[in-house]
């Protein structure tokens, strides 16, 4: 018998992937939601201005933050609907592994959506975007996704097992990811906006990293109390 955390982690991720591939509901819904969200912002802001480039970073990350709520909201849903959680919790899986697997799955969801949505947003809103900027924006996406996933996994684990969960989650999640939106939008703007402000970009990226680490520690210190009754 060898229950290595890596094997458990892989098994949990494969499980999430299989569930998603069978239904494909989460990723598709998130993608469509993000597109609709950007259109709404276009009508709210874009039509009042010739060039939406200065707002592009803000529009992208405001939309992605709202989209993240959908993805985070799916966390633990199969476990709750199909009552599998008891089986997972009686298995000898360290709670850290459960939380990590959750977070990694969330990062994957978010990245999948962003691979499609972010380039489209750049086409829609940004004039004269350089191809190389895309790489820098990708770094922002990864950092911001890790930050959102860590916070999201912790908060979703509480909201999903509460009443009125679909109302509760956005109220819990959005205020705490405001700093992520500010920093990610700032970094994206620094890259895509007029005049590449790289030093600004890196400061925002460092902030995103710090945010992820701080909440990683908070999650690490508290997740035991969240999952175990």
């Amino acid at each position: 018998m060898s229950a290595s955390p890596l094997r458990q982690m892989r098994a949990l991720l494969v499980k999430d992937l299989r569930l998603e591939l069978r239904t494909r509901e989460t990723a598709v819904a998130m993608g469509l939601f993000a597109l609709v969200g950007m259109m709404i912002f276009q009508f709210a802001i874009g039509t009042r201005t010739d060039d939406a480039t200065p707002f592009a970073g803000g529009i992208i990350w405001a939309t992605l933050a709202l989209t993240a709520v959908l993805g985070v909201g799916r966390t633990w849903v199969p476990e709750r609907e199909q009552r599998v959680l008891d089986a997972l919790l009686t298995a000898p899986v360290p709670r850290l592994v459960l939380m990590l697997a959750r977070s990694v799955a969330l990062v994957l969801y978010l990245l999948t959506v962003q691979v499609v949505v972010v380039p489209m947003a750049i086409v829609f809103f940004v004039r004269d975007a350089a191809f190389s900027d895309l790489g820098l924006v990708a770094v922002v996406c990864v950092l911001a996704d890790v930050a959102i996933a860590v916070v999201g996994a912790l908060l979703a684990s509480m909201s999903v097992f509460s009443r009125a969960r679909e109302l509760l989650l956005p109220v819990l999640l959005l205020p705490s990811i405001i700093p992520v939106v500010i920093a990610a939008a700032g970094a994206t703007h620094a890259v895509l906006g007029p005049g590449n402000a790289l030093d600004e970009y890196w400061r925002y990226c460092v902030f995103l990293g710090v945010y992820a680490v701080v909440f990683g520690l908070v999650a690490f210190a508290t997740f035991d109390h969240v999952l175990d009754d």
Partner: peptide, 10 residues
């Protein structure tokens, strides 16, 4: 397969 992996069944 999932539960076998979680319990470390060979």
């Amino acid at each position: 397969e999932l539960f076998g992996d979680l319990f470390g069944v060979d």
